[in-house]
Design a protein around this nucleic acid. Structure first.
Lengths: 360, 360
DNA sequence: CTGAAAGCGCTTACAG
DNA sequence: CTGAAAGCGCTTACAG
């Protein structure tokens, strides 16, 4: 008997329709659909054939309503030191997704680890697993520990997504984040574009950097590769600062500025610390030197609005968090395929478009 | 009696809980919640007080399931001339949203109008209204006709969102699109940044332009304002091309190139036609002139990848479509507040980040 | 191995 | 003006 649903012109197929067509009860159809066993091979085949023929699509609303059961997810990301911390941003996206999916029973348990202490990651992962989560989102900040954790998750058949940095060799549900090498390459191009070709440029790494190291390395590689390929004659300074202190920066950068010979026209910092350089530039009145850095933390926002920074490369951290949870949700609830390497856009932010840059 | 839901630690409030607390039936609670009348003032007040006290949040899943009714939306946008047309992009976003919301009963009827014929817009709007849509998304391409339509919709109390261009004076549910003026301002800044200060730049409008005119005007204003405010001494050519033909472009641009005096260093086209200039640059071997334009149509993508275009400003057309439908959905189904002027990000695309630029 | 029944939270037509 | 009941599509515990 055709379904009398008011919805749609071509009527929606319900398990009831399948049951009738197969001459079984809806309970049996459900057992087949969810592989709950206790069905003879014969009826199973029959039901599956009809499911396919009618192109049955389960009604997620009805399913979630009837299940009325929590789906626990775990999130493991670095602890944000303050409200301005980079790690607040993925968290915002995760929470937005959590709110939207609460109706479907998704419950998220957060576990924050200390970026200075590997053991906190491992113990956080243990705690997370104790809840028997149906999915995990984590940032593989400590590579070795993360690989181990990932292998364990594979064994336990718990799907997981990675954000911020990737574990290339690991088979995850999805990676959400930048192609770090390419973002460095882009930074090279931007700096090349806005500085005279006969002046030098510098890349400056902060030694006390607590961010993921493989990230920084790849950004630097990309930056250097750009100049190798496109402007090999450009003089390049590769600098490392042990300290974020302005006086220290001055002692490091002043020799390189050499206004007479090949003056320094631009500086690239492959992480969110570019605002330190901006402070130096301002205090020592070196305005005119072009600065490129990463991430929209508020000190950088201030510096870009003040005209001290030209470009900030942004990796959509909120989107990484949001899509990460969404990917888990789609996999677990809707049983959809996920994209393995879901690189987020490499966004270019200037003083002119920053006020319009937002995540949903 | 507390609810025994397995979900959540603080139990979800159901209408049943409210009914019990108020000493009425769930039918009465529903009548109050949906203002269906036929309830005494006294019980109404009592119920509303409890709703507020318990912070009741309706379960959208159950509601949609029980309603089992179509929610018709109408979409009115310009007809895409071919698959490469700009107008395919908002359509993609609209369709993505439509798919996600189909479970909730959202049904979308599309009405495409001809950008060369105002009357097709008016008749499309009439057809759209004949279906009694619960919400409308449209692009106010023809300003006068759109204002009239908007006023009619207000009268009929049909919520509507605008995409692509805005009707500032009209009270819509939401506008999704660029701040056109600011995007032109950004283009000015980018061109200024990548060209030597002692060379000239040009803005080129295509006269046969069929895109929304107010858009173009504001982009141009923004561009000119940038130079007024930041580099008033820069020589600026304001050009208008009656033809997209390369030979015509050559006759127009060659006099301006003046390699001897103040050579032309960059050209800005405030719409998607920048690829025509790229073709001219290539054919006449003027490589080295910086080009900035709009929109990721495939001819522009090709030119930016070939290194002929430096920057494309992108207005996230897919996102405009997606969020437009989502806003209608939230308003109609979830009764949420919408943001009136929801400017989309002004994205900067280069050869280096274009392959990573994607919409969900 | 299979079916009938109750229930998820909300909506609505009907009886009073 | 109000309540009891049936139903949306799916899930599950129980009886056979």
């Amino acid at each position: 008997m055709p379904n009398k649903s008011k919805k749609g012109n071509n009527p929606t197929i319900r398990i009831k329709d399948i049951a009738e067509k197969a001459g079984v009860s809806i309970g049996t159809v459900d057992r087949v659909l969810h592989n709950r066993g206790e069905v003879s091979e014969k009826t199973k085949k029959k039901v599956l054939a009809i499911v396919k023929e009618l192109n049955y699509q389960p009604n997620l609303l009805a399913s979630s309503l009837a299940l009325k059961k929590e789906i626990p997810f775990a999130v493991l990301i670095p602890k944000a030191h303050d409200d301005d911390s980079y790690w607040m941003k993925p968290l915002d996206g995760i929470q937005k997704a959590a709110n939207e999916m609460a109706q479907y029973g998704i419950r998220i348990k957060y576990h924050f680890f200390d970026m200075m202490d590997k053991s906190t990651f491992t113990s956080a992962m243990e705690k997370a697993l104790a809840d028997n989560p149906r999915g995990i989102l984590f940032s593989p900040y400590f590579t070795n520990e993360s690989v181990k954790a990932a292998e364990l998750l594979q064994e336990m058949e718990i799907p997981f997504v990675l954000i911020d940095s990737n574990l290339k060799q690991i088979d995850k549900l999805s990676y959400l984040g930048h192609d770090a090498q390419q973002s460095g390459y882009l930074a090279g191009r931007l700096l090349d574009l806005c500085t005279p070709k006969d002046q030098s440029v510098a890349i400056l790494n902060f030694g006390k950097e607590t961010e993921n190291l493989s990230h920084l390395k790849r950004r630097k590689e990309g930056f250097l590769t750009y100049f190798e390929q496109n402007n090999p004659n450009r003089e390049l300074h590769v600098l490392k600062s042990e300290d974020e202190d302005v006086e220290y920066l001055a002692s490091l950068l002043t020799p390189v500025l050499r206004k007479d010979k090949m003056p320094l026209a631009g500086i690239f910092v492959p992480n969110s610390k570019i605002y330190r350089v901006a402070t130096f530039i301002k205090q020592y009145e070196h305005e005119g030197i072009h600065l490129i850095g990463y991430d929209l933390i508020s000190k950088n926002v201030e510096a870009i609005k003040g005209g001290l920074i030209d470009f900030l490369v942004c990796q959509r951290p909120e989107e990484q968090g949001y899509k990460g949870i969404y990917t888990l949700f789609e996999h677990v609830v809707a049983r959809k395929e996920a994209i393995k390497e879901n690189f987020t856009s490499i966004d270019i932010i200037t003083r002119e478009n920053i006020d319009y840059y937002r995540f949903l």
